[in-house]
């Protein structure tokens, strides 16, 4: 009984602290339209808008910080920020190190983009961003994988001929292809890799995870999430 009271007291104290605490939201800030740093130097994009809405519904004060994609999980785990919203697909490998909320973007296709149609996707040189599901897919496909730290550099590598094609999320590539004046084009079939995109949290942060799960359920239920997906990824994007 004594233990129970103690546990309840500790819980009350810790929730009291959590209420006053600022949640630091980590993102990459270099993957439009998911997340990017806009011209005012602020984090912007689909995940910014969604994240702010989720924080509002969960009653949390949130602040955005950017971190390089490559070290985004180690910095979460060591406590530099509390969540990751960076277009990160939920995969079993990542799930071993961190926890994910339920998905807030349904599993969406990845696609190849190249300068011309006759590209050997199975044996050529394919580029992808480091530590992404696309990179491991290319490595398994038999093609030669060239990795870059940012998604922007993968596009540049295709443009200057360093790589034959790039594999990335179709939602990321679509505006780039559309605005390239026909220089870049989608080649081959879309590929479905991995599940949806979720918010990453420390495994020990189950309380915060529950709060965000609840908030995501609520934006899913009243259609806010679908409207946001359509706003940022176009009317053809997969919704819930």
């Amino acid at each position: 009984m004594k233990k129970l009271i103690l546990a309840a007291a500790v819980f009350a104290v810790s929730t009291g602290i959590a209420g006053a605490q600022t949640i630091r939201m980590g993102t990459e800030g270099a993957y439009p339209p998911y997340n990017f740093v806009n011209d005012n130097g602020e984090v912007d994009g689909f995940e910014r808008e969604l994240g702010d809405e989720l924080c509002k519904r969960a009653g949390l004060t949130c602040e955005w910080v950017t971190n390089e994609w490559d070290s985004i999980i180690p910095n979460l785990v060591s406590g530099n920020y509390d969540t990751i919203m960076a277009g990160m697909s939920i995969t079993p490998e990542r799930d071993q190190v961190i926890d994910f909320t339920q998905e807030y973007i349904p599993g969406s296709p990845s696609a190849y983009v190249a300068l011309s149609d006759n590209v050997d996707l199975k044996g050529g040189v394919i580029t992808a961003q480091t530590s992404t599901i696309q990179a491991s897919y290319v490595a398994d496909s038999g093609a030669t994988l060239v990795e870059f730290a940012t998604a922007d550099e993968t596009i540049a590598a295709v443009r200057n001929g360093e790589a034959d094609a790039v594999l990335a999320d179709k939602d990321f590539l679509a505006p780039i292809v559309a605005e390239s004046n026909g220089e870049l084009k989608f080649v081959g079939d879309d590929v479905i890799i991995g599940g949806g995109v979720g918010m990453g949290l420390r495994e020990s942060d189950s309380e915060l995870k529950a709060k965000f799960n609840e908030a995501i359920s609520s934006v899913k239920a009243d259609g806010t999430l679908n409207a946001m997906i359509k706003k940022w990824f176009g009317d053809d994007a997969a919704t819930f």
Binding site: I17, A18, V65, V77, G79, V97, R202
Partner: peptide, 24 residues
């Protein structure tokens, strides 16, 4: 609670450096 929980490094919120509530 233990400070090392698997991969996680968890200290109490008051021990965070800087505090997560402090401005950027």
């Amino acid at each position: 609670q233990p400070i090392r929980q698997g991969n996680d490094f968890v200290v109490c919120p008051q021990a965070k450096l800087p505090l997560s509530s402090s401005p950027q």
